[in-house]
Write a protein that binds this DNA or RNA. Sequence first.
DNA 1: GTTTATGCAAAGGCTTTGCATTTCA
DNA 2: TGAAATGCAAAGCCTTTGCATAAAC
Lengths: 153, 153
Amino acid sequence: MAATETSQHVQRLFSDYLERNKHRKTPERFAILSEIYAHEGHFDIEQLYGRMKSKNYRVSRATLYNTMELLLDCQLVRRHRFQGAQAQFEKAHAYRQHDHAVCDRCGKVQEFCDPRIQQIRNTVSEVMDLEVTHHALLIHGICKDCRNERNEQ
Amino acid sequence: MAATETSQHVQRLFSDYLERNKHRKTPERFAILSEIYAHEGHFDIEQLYGRMKSKNYRVSRATLYNTMELLLDCQLVRRHRFQGAQAQFEKAHAYRQHDHAVCDRCGKVQEFCDPRIQQIRNTVSEVMDLEVTHHALLIHGICKDCRNERNEQ
DNA sequence: GTTTATGCAAAGGCTTTGCATTTCA
DNA sequence: TGAAATGCAAAGCCTTTGCATAAAC
């Protein structure tokens, strides 16, 4: 699927979501979604704010936070807290399910997929009678580079 | 293993850790560890502070935060960020590996074990050349009670 | 015309930091 | 005795809130 196609598609999904939930379709909301889907990888609110500012979008941090709540609710965005207090986000649609491995020394985050996680989800859902919406698996460790550095010192 | 035995054991582990890393063995540090191991379940700094205050331990929040870093480093405690900014902790030793399922509506946290997660860890470790120290799997969903409430409204 | 959303700045909550004092080694 | 840890309060950072203004419906 081409980038523009995906972008149009999520705009549509967001539009439908707003309509369903009687929220207003403001230009800011669509501009934010568009900016998010124009980039790959993780970002925090400050980075998103900076990117929009630099393109001369007039948007406030408050609106960014508010809009992220909506985008989380309709599953177009996912939120992580890898380390520290500040939340990291990433787009969630048309981006295959994946999890994260983080190096606790340098903070580097890598992605991986493993089908077994789906089986675990199914089991947990059954056993606990939980209507599972999503999950986050974070594997912590020390990456190769950091191990080498440690040994050199 | 009896509770006191475990407690003595972790005190020993902590003591060794402090020695190895040339940290001082202060009474505060051992009192904090002891208080943590005297309880089950998750807790945050404020709760720990309250519990120690109520027992007339004289300890500051700063020392609690500092000591948690040490306990995290030597793996006697684990830190989670289930939701919101504030960190939740739980003791990690002699407490079998488990993961968490959280209801996004009421915030209830349940624990579960699944051996398949270990297989995933092994795979990730191999493929990414990561020296895995620990992991955290969080399964999000809506619990039975909350689903029922939603339907009644 | 109402009601909702925005933007700004102020307030809030959790965590970290600075510094004088105390304590461990 | 000298270096490290403690306690307190202040500062920091991320996030939320309050309120006047603007915009959607």
